[in-house]
């Protein structure tokens, strides 16, 4: 799904009446099936922007259009899947039941027939993320990387066309994270969703994305857009190649030009 973001702004007012500009006039558009990362230091508004696109928090100014249709303000949609930094799995539910959770929620939960279809899809998704043998296990029996795979499968259950990922691998160790990067690209290619990926890791952003939006804080805004010209499919083998290093440097320079501690 194509996403158009126009003059998006978010102002928080503190209890003492001061207002804090978390996000200031962001305009960009993301093509259907694109993979875009938001990078920047803490407080640059990248998570805020993601939450607004996902409908988790209302925007103060501007608008968000999905395929040219304005999205209602602060309302979540089943077409947008979310993956958080923590897997947020319910420990009393098995892996399969966790993936199936979205089907059981909302004003009109799915009927019996659709429910069976979605059970099938949940199993297929577990297969997709390589956890078909763990469907009856509980989250606390899985490793951190496996838990995050379950979270990705859950976000895909209702065939989300947009996937919002908020530092999903930040809590994983380096080796697991590299594996997850390849996994995510494989899943993205297979499912064809539009991905918005928030991270403060420049390497991660360069490895995954077609385009990196560089953001800076106070007020949070997008200061540069960097095209990543690396061929796909990408594997971890490209890390360390001249092409990869070039792209990382482009992002870093864009950041350095607009921001210093």
């Amino acid at each position: 799904m194509e996403i158009d973001i126009r003059d998006l702004g978010k102002v928080y007012s503190s209890s003492r009446g001061e207002s804090v500009v978390a996000l200031d006039g962001v305009t960009t558009s993301i093509a259907a099936g694109d993979f875009v990362s938001l990078v920047g230091p803490s407080g640059c508004g990248k998570s805020t922007m993601l939450d607004i696109v996902a409908g988790l928090i209302p925007r103060t100014t501007g608008e968000v259009l999905f395929n040219g249709v304005a999205a209602p303000n602060g309302v979540t949609s089943k077409g947008v899947g979310l993956v958080f930094q923590k897997p947020v799995l319910l420990p009393w539910r098995t892996t399969l039941e966790n993936v199936f959770l979205p089907a059981q929620l909302g004003e009109d939960p799915v009927g019996k027939e659709r429910g069976l279809e979605l059970k099938e899809r949940a199993l297929e998704l577990l297969d997709l993320v390589g956890l078909e043998q763990f469907s009856e296990k509980y989250p606390w029996e899985l490793s951190g990387g496996m838990q995050q795979r379950v979270a990705i499968a859950r976000a895909l259950l209702l065939e989300a066309e947009i996937m919002c990922l908020d530092e999903p691998f930040a809590a994983l160790d380096e080796f697991t994270r590299e594996q997850m990067h390849e996994e995510l690209l494989r899943i993205w290619k297979q499912q064809g969703f539009t991905a918005i990926f928030v991270t403060h890791n420049i390497f991660e952003a360069a490895f995954l994305s077609n385009r990196v939006l560089v953001m800076t804080p106070r007020p949070g805004k997008v200061v540069a857009e960097v095209e990543i010209d690396l061929p796909r499919p990408r594997s971890t083998d490209i890390i360390g190649t001249a092409g990869f290093t070039d792209n990382v440097r482009k992002v870093r320079e864009a950041m350095a030009e607009h921001w210093s501690v």
Binding site: G55, L56, T76, L82, F84, K86, L105, G106
Partner: peptide
């Protein structure tokens, strides 16, 4: 957990569903 509530909200859960499921 706040994250659980955030997840449930992102999935459009009703108040009763949040009570019962989480």
């Amino acid at each position: 957990d706040r994250d659980d509530l955030r997840l449930m909200r992102s999935l459009g859960a009703t108040r009763l569903q949040v009570l019962w499921r989480v």
